[in-house]
Design a protein around this nucleic acid. Structure first.
Length: 644
RNA sequence: GCCACUUUAGCUCAGCUGGUAGAGCAACUGAUUUGUAAUCAGUAGGUCGUUGGUUCGAUUCCGACAAGUGGCUCCA
């Protein structure tokens, strides 16, 4: 007999070799029908795998993260079985569960899979699921495993086997499909009731673009049709707040073939938002002791050789313009120009920290396939700044920048983000990162300390640093789930030396400053894209391109509407009058759809009493007010940058 | 850049197996003068992304290119 400890602490005795599924059955049949896998002594196991020792046990269902991923991983195997049936001779690479569903990478040889095939595969998967084939686990020796896949001429699985040790190799089979797999899997295919193969994509083998491109099929499955429908519904909702859709509907930005890919033109509405953001940045930076500078959009090749950017990023810079034998590049970062400003006048320790900020425009020739709405573009505007400081000052300065981020996030109501401490990767020193192991270590510790001292939760990720130093990145997700860096705060121990930047210290000796690169509002392109999605287009009043629309009931009240509008304009409120000969219902509808925060309905009553009937977007009629009263309220709301 | 798909009026989308195109909204004109999410009628608007080819004939079939979409790679 063995002792099984349940999550609530209860201990029960069972026969040696009992499975989690049998234990579930002993509790209730209903429970057993929901068990997908089990957590046995901290490891996720097949529910059907015999337990041979005392163990803590947590039964996993669809409601558990591990239960879901087991379900999806098993779905990947089910899909592989269907693919093998429809595309004989296919070879598989790996097929993991992902955040939403699963994929399987495969080599189809010369055959091409198209979207029409997905329907066929879904049909086949449904058939196989209905057979409720059991997933069986089999331990196998390495030579046997190699034999099996050699017979199958499957070089991919043989490649995987190379990295595995004898004694840890298992096969899983269901129906006619056997795969090299660590597991675990759900008990049977019958659990999978709803299947949707979402897309076909290419994916480089082992994620390396020098390798062959495999075919990747993405899918998602559910234990009931209803859940699939809910998921699809949710995707539809997410699409409604996609910044590309809202950006068009609300007249925020446009692009044009004749201008070029990834080159954003900001329409008047979008420009208002940019200017409000920049105004906020200026106020904040003035208070933080920054000075503003302006630099050109181009610079000579020699500067980017000095900075070290060229060897790392030549491919993603626009090609140089050649004039009188000199090569000029469009700048793809502001840093070098700022360093030159630092170097323009001699600095002493008394001048530090030296903080300079610019509303900078940079150009990056991102690969065409990487472009994405406002999130990834080729011409970027950023609220950029560089801080030059001593090592002693670093902690305070870096922390002040971090605090600035948090202050901004509070203003914008941004709370769904992940702070990422982006570290270098020692294997790539001298390739992707400047070869200064000691300085990496030192600065990474400094940055980590700032985060720890500030009590900010963060994750550490290797191989995400800039080439010149570690950084803190703020990661966010777009409406459709893509991950982006919204803001970044970087340490640079390298460029100060490359540019021979110096200040005179207290003992009259030259010293190289540390540099902090920071862009808390990221690029305006990405930031506004993010805000569009965050607010679903309903900007807070201070950011709204149009803040108030005055809606006269009929032409008779047009003059009064214009008077009201003028009073608002005099107070710098962005306002317009809807002077169309339409019914008030139509005017309201159109203004609601344009997400204008305030509508002032004016008719006979309002005109006679010098008042306005206030309607708040999304909230409806909020009552009649005197013009002065409304004006005072909205001015305060704007001044406070109230989130709603 | 790579894999797959898409591209029809300003926008959203119809258009069966090849015979040069339609709707709703928007725009314009007229009527209506309206009280909190769509007043009615009329008019105009497209060498069907560009470009080659097949064909008596191509929006429709094939190729190339461009842009877009979902991924991969990348993101100073």
């Amino acid at each position: 007999m063995i002792n099984i400890t349940f999550p609530d602490g209860a201990v029960r005795q069972y026969e040696n070799g009992i499975s989690a599924l049998d234990i579930a059955k002993s509790i209730s049949e209903g429970l057993a029908r929901k068990i997908l896998a089990a957590n046995v002594n901290g490891q996720v196991w097949d529910a059907t795998r015999p337990i041979n020792e005392d163990a803590s046990l947590n039964l996993l269902t669809w409601n558990d993260k591990d239960g879901k991923s087991t379900f999806w991983h098993s779905s990947a195997h089910l899909m592989a079985e269907a693919v093998e049936a429809v595309f004989p001779g296919v070879k598989f690479w790996v097929g993991p569960a992902i955040e939403n569903g699963f994929y399987y990478d495969m080599d189809l040889g010369d055959t091409k899979m198209t979207e029409e095939d997905l329907a066929k595969l879904e049909k086949k998967m449904n058939e196989l699921a209905k057979q409720n084939n059991v997933y069986t686990r089999k331990e196998i020796s390495k030579p046997e495993a190699i034999q099996y896949f050699s017979n199958k001429k499957d070089e991919y699985k043989l490649d995987l086997l190379q990295g595995l040790h004898d004694g840890e190799i298992t096969f899983y089979s269901q129906g006619n499909f056997t795969d090299l797999c660590r597991g675990p899997h759900i008990p049977g295919t019958g659990f999978i009731k709803a299947i949707k193969l979402t897309s076909i994509a290419g994916a480089y083998w082992k994620g390396d673009e020098k390798n062959k491109m495999l075919t990747r099929v993405y899918g998602i499955t559910f234990p009931s049709q209803k859940e699939l429908e809910e998921y699809l519904q949710m995707l539809e909702e997410a699409k409604k707040r996609d910044h590309r859709k809202l950006g068009k509907e609300l007249g925020i930005y446009t692009m044009d073939d004749d201008v070029g890919q990834g080159l954003i033109m900001w329409l008047p509405n979008g420009t208002v938002i940019i200017e409000e953001l920049e105004k906020l940045a200026k106020e904040t930076e003035n208070a933080g002791g920054y000075k503003r500078v302006v630099t050109p959009h181009i610079a000579k090749e020699s500067m980017y050789l000095t900075s070290g950017h060229l060897p790392y990023y030549a491919d993603s810079m626009y090609p140089p313009m050649e004039m009188d034998g000199e090569k000029y590049y469009l700048k793809s970062m502001n840093c070098p120009h700022h360093h030159k400003i630092f170097a323009a006048e001699p600095k002493s320790y008394r001048d530090l920290p030296y903080r300079i900020a610019e509303y900078g425009t940079v150009y990056r020739y991102e690969q065409s396939g990487e472009l994405f709405g406002l999130m990834r573009v080729r011409c970027l505007h950023m609220n950029d700044a560089h801080i030059y400081c001593t090592k002693e000052q670093f902690n305070d300065e870096f922390r002040a920048v971090n605090d600035m981020y948090l202050k901004y996030f509070k203003i914008f109501g941004i709370d769904k983000y992940v702070m990422r401490l982006s570290l270098h990767s020692p294997e790539k020193l001298g390739i992707k990162y400047v070869n200064e192991p000691e300085l990496w270590k030192e600065t990474e510790t400094m940055v980590r300390n700032v985060l720890t001292e500030s009590n900010i939760p963060f994750v550490e990720v290797q191989d995400e640093a800039a080439f010149y130093g570690p950084k803190i990145d703020v990661q966010i997700y777009s409406a459709i789930g893509r991950e982006f860096t919204l803001a970044t705060n970087q340490v640079d121990f390298s460029q100060g030396r490359s540019f021979k930047l110096e200040y005179t210290d207290q003992t009259n000796k030259p010293e190289t400053p540390l540099i902090i690169h920071r862009a808390p509002l990221g690029t305006h392109e990405r930031f506004i894209g993010f805000l569009l999605e965050q607010y679903a287009g309903k900007f807070p009043v201070w950011l709204a391109p149009l803040q108030v629309k005055v809606l006269p009931i009929s032409d008779k009240f047009l003059d009064y509407a214009k008077t009201v509008s003028q009073k608002l304009k005099n107070a710098d409120i962005r306002t317009e009058v809807d002077d169309r000969q339409e019914k008030i219902g139509k005017k309201i509808r159109d203004t609601e759809l344009m997400k204008v925060p305030y509508m002032l309905v004016v008719g006979e009553k309002e005109m006679n009493e010098d008042k306005v009937a206030v309607r708040r977007q999304g909230k409806g009629d909020i009552g009649v007010k005197g013009i002065e009263e409304f004006l005072n309220e909205i001015i305060t709301e704007i001044k406070d940058r109230r989130a709603e």
